[in-house]
Write a protein that binds this DNA or RNA. Sequence first.
DNA 1: TTGTAAGCGTTATCAC
DNA 2: GTGATAACGCTTACAA
Lengths: 385, 385
Amino acid sequence: MTGSSPDRAGRATRRKRRPSGAVTIKEIAALSQVSSATVTRALQGHPRVRPETRARVERAAEALGYRPNHAARTLATGASKTIGLLLPSTGDRYWGEVVEGIEDAADDAGYSVLLATSHGDAARSRRMLDLLLSKRVDGMVIAARREVEEALTHAELPVALVRVGPDAELDDGDVEAVRTLPDDRLAGWLEGRRLGDLAPGVIGFDDVSAATLAVEHLVGLGHRRLAFVGAGNRRSAALRVAGFRQSTGRAGVESAAVVASSDRLADSHAAALDLLGAPERPTGIVAYDDMVALGAIRAARTLGLRVPEQVSVVGIDDIDVAAFLEPPLTTVRQPKREIGRLAAIALFEALGSGTPSPGRALRGELIVRGSTAPPPGHDAADEAR
Amino acid sequence: MTGSSPDRAGRATRRKRRPSGAVTIKEIAALSQVSSATVTRALQGHPRVRPETRARVERAAEALGYRPNHAARTLATGASKTIGLLLPSTGDRYWGEVVEGIEDAADDAGYSVLLATSHGDAARSRRMLDLLLSKRVDGMVIAARREVEEALTHAELPVALVRVGPDAELDDGDVEAVRTLPDDRLAGWLEGRRLGDLAPGVIGFDDVSAATLAVEHLVGLGHRRLAFVGAGNRRSAALRVAGFRQSTGRAGVESAAVVASSDRLADSHAAALDLLGAPERPTGIVAYDDMVALGAIRAARTLGLRVPEQVSVVGIDDIDVAAFLEPPLTTVRQPKREIGRLAAIALFEALGSGTPSPGRALRGELIVRGSTAPPPGHDAADEAR
DNA sequence: TTGTAAGCGTTATCAC
DNA sequence: GTGATAACGCTTACAA
């Protein structure tokens, strides 16, 4: 065979791939006089590496400014150490705080977070789900909303998954039942449905107990005529209504009305206007959330009613300006960060064990501020009962 | 040589790597009777592929439920189609909206977003920067804050980078100058510094013009005694003060005071209390941001002054409850989503061209609501001047 | 137009 | 305790 065979020539001219320019373990290997396998072992804290070898390798890595290439690692190990996050949006305060909790827990566990938003659209959800899967996330946290659930049923995702959010786990039939069931049967029905327990892999807010907390606060102050404003057709609204009806029934309040309205300010303002304009108006209002509470307060003001002296209002959520409103809003705080944290932790557990973690509904916390007080004509002595 | 040589036996028993289980181009290649190279070409819309081959490959991919492995692609191409995002936090409203804009633009351009938070800590910033680099992001958008800037100076990042945020591009010396420079020299100084133009690769908010917009609105309503509340030591605060002083000077208002306070409600409340308690109190207040405006409104109320009848207040930012406050807040809206969008777009341009994009300061928009009105004793005729 | 095979940077198996 | 080297799944230069 001739030295100048076409084969040899071809090899020689063949332009090798442009390297990324970044430092690789090969260079560390060369500098520290070991094989690349040893470099990996040394850098990963493998037990069977001679201490001085490890030291030499670490020094070389440091000197060269080595940064492991995660893409290569992912390819080799099959794990990306990244989780995906699919949310309706990140702009609104609710999700922003949840994300913070997730990011926090992920960081503690050595994971990164890849973001995707559905914008409430099923097709987009599906596309994003595919994208996250393509990027080989090890698991995902998704906001449990109808359009995403739909996308999920067609998917059968090959990764661990935790659902999170306020609107989880109550189907439409139940929503209807909550509204129409007679008072005396509601409590039993709620128990039977075990609404406090969420399905496996779902982390959410305990809507029922949140409303209960609000009612108990008002009843404790002496209120006997209560109303719930803001019963939209969301699952969370139905659950809060259920909690409201259940606890008012238990406390034997004289009158407990439920007034529908969306969570938009104008709607809740109008609804509260009707409610407070009636002759037998309630002295205490439990609002679906803080925005609805704002509408109710405004309605009271429109009617010349003072809050909290003549009407008490309690919200649910604790938005960040709640404390700065006039009056500062009494509300049931939703632990958003904590929900995020627990969702991420549940995901990592599932990742480890291979089985979905049990669902959890986190209880809110009553924050008493200035929008609630004893009802008119109620003297302090009664309060101590 | 014997058929049962140790070498052969070794090869035979050698357990190959566990495959990820996902569908690969090889399987598509097998099913569609072409080589894997052709599969790649077909799937990527490479021009020189026979249409029927392409169709066959696409059908096979579809049938098998193929999802490209981005880790492998990243390794092969050197581009991850992912950008990193380093922010102080995602929980607060400001960043949440910026993220939304970034995510949006990234999605349009075919990029994903990897999230990291600095929590305002330089060491953590550095760690996160390294992590993002390790994950081989193609570029990054980072919040331009002091601790991150510090981390950056020691880094010399090998990727394209855009900085975004309200606190950019004014150093401490300038902050001092803005406060102390006599009125008549301020305008010239501002021009000379070209504060409206941000450094290359920085997308921000035009703080100077925001304050100007607020002042001009108040002056247009007939106000002649103005004050700025909330001059903290942030760069954005200094720029807003500069804008305030510059425009009040230009308009020849009788008195233009600047009162320092943090952006916390209690502080701004106290500061405004002093200001409005004085005999020669201003009739119009420009607040550093909406929270400070809230504090000012509360202070006015504390003193029995009605807003807007006796005192007008204009904020900067337009937080989401601004419209629902009592009174609804007049403010200069900060285009957060847009800032995010432009930052991402600037990054992609830089990615394409290799050169940093020019900086941009986005102007706010005045939103007139209920917290501003002509000053007391000002009749409607004057307004038409 | 299509096939072959090298190469991206890492991990992990086997042999010594 | 260390070294060779196959493999992860994909892209791409070159040959055909």
